[in-house]
């Protein structure tokens, strides 16, 4: 535990230092609050009785959408990877389509999804799924394929069938890869939700920020943004925590080295 604090305090100190410099600069140069509010002004604004309950409500809406979209996206990405892996020839057929799906700018998808699915939660959740499935599918496909050839050879030699090799070798091998995809998806999911809320609907931090921005309530824009950042980091940490709990078999050193994006 003590060790964690030792590693945790330098970034925290840097953040505190930046906030202090920000505060000092705003006061020193007497910057108007609608251009750049100081950190203390942001906190004061957020704590106002007509602001805080609304921030809470919109945060809850964003959290719920993000978690739903992320869960469905990860599920879809995992299943898709398994199907592509198990159906002979599907990998080659699907690879260009997968990449193509990512070249469509998702801003363009928003109005289309609104036309098709209305102004409720559905288009937003579908958008989050579309953004989240890709890193999961790609990472998972790599994990399913890149098993130790010695293990593959051994299992074939003792007569394991296709299903056993999938369930006992390929799937467990893919789990750490799945988590590196999951961490990226978790980070994407929050920004996607906020963007989707910006474009339509009447709830969520994206909507609230847009509203505050139109009313020159810069303090509230910052308050919403800070909550989004905190939520994103929480999601990233949550993904890392789940990974630690699930992948217990790895050597300590390898685990810290990890796959993909390490925090």
């Amino acid at each position: 535990m003590g060790n964690k604090w030792m590693r945790g305090w330098p970034p925290l100190a840097v953040i505190a230092l930046c906030a202090a410099a920000w505060e000092a600069a705003v006061r020193l140069f007497a910057i108007e609050p609608y251009i750049l509010p100081s950190p203390s002004a942001i906190v004061r604004e957020a704590m106002q009785p007509n602001v805080w309950p609304r921030l809470e409500m919109h945060t809850l809406a964003t959290v719920w959408r993000t978690l739903t979209g992320l869960a469905l996206g990860v599920l879809a990405g995992t299943l898709l990877a398994a199907v592509i892996h198990l159906v002979p020839g599907a990998r080659r057929a699907a690879a260009p389509l997968l990449v193509l799906s990512q070249t469509v700018p998702y801003i363009v998808l928003v109005p289309l999804l609104l036309i098709w699915l209305g102004f409720g939660d559905e288009p937003k959740i579908v958008l989050i799924m579309l953004v989240c499935f890709f890193p999961v599918t790609v990472a998972m496909l790599t994990g399913l394929r890149e098993c130790d050839p010695a293990l593959r050879g051994y299992l074939a030699m003792i007569g394991a069938d296709r299903w056993t090799i999938f369930a006992k070798l390929e799937l467990p091998n893919a789990v750490p890869y799945l988590f590196s995809g999951f961490r990226i998806a978790a980070a994407y999911s929050v920004t996607t939700t906020v963007a989707a809320e910006w474009f339509g609907g009447g709830s969520g931090l994206g909507y609230y920020i847009k509203l505050s921005y139109s009313g020159f309530q810069t303090g509230r824009v910052f308050a919403g943004t800070i909550i989004i950042i905190a939520f994103s980091m929480l999601m990233f940490g949550l993904a890392a925590l789940i990974e630690r709990l699930v992948v217990r078999w790895k050597p300590e050193a390898e685990r810290r080295g990890g796959h993909g994006a390490g925090a």
Binding site: A156, M157, K168
Partner: peptide
């Protein structure tokens, strides 16, 4: 036909997650 022999490979080939 597979599965008719017991086999010990050069690498121990133990699944690391078991």
């Amino acid at each position: 036909r597979r599965g008719l022999i017991a086999y010990m490979p050069q690498q121990a080939s133990l699944l690391p997650w078991r």
